[in-house]
Amino acid sequence: MIARRIIVLLLLLGALAEAWPAAQTLVLVVRRDSPVTDLDSVTVRKLFLGVPVLINGTPLRPIRNRSEPHLDEIFLQQIVAMSQPSYDRQILNGVNRQGWLAPSEAASVTRVAAELNANPNAVSFMWERDVAHNPNLRVLRVLWSD
């Protein structure tokens, strides 16, 4: 009887552990063989605002991960530090005034990973857990942690 209860309790604890949300960490990623080794937060911000950022004479290509709404919120708050309308206006101004390029957008993690794999100068962000599923990617830095 007691043994059965212990087994049930252990099963419940296991189920709870599965349901308990794991801590989330947002990381900046590039292709494993990318020449980009480090980017400070100011450069990351400029990059995603459309400002040309050159590494060894080659411009980096920012990819905005739009696979989930929560990522958008973190992107606006932690990376570009703007509201959505301000960011939108900033991007349009950059394109119109300077011919800057707006960051390309990817609607799924798979797409983000594909674009990163296709271009060594591409830079994007994703959950750390997603990086584990893409061994061809390299984490540059932690952008945000829950």
Binding site: P52, L54, G57, T58, P59, V95, G99, W100, L101
Partner: peptide, 13 residues
Amino acid sequence: MILSLQRGPFRLF
């Protein structure tokens, strides 16, 4: 209409 291209350090605007 604005078209901007970039290939390496070269740009067309």
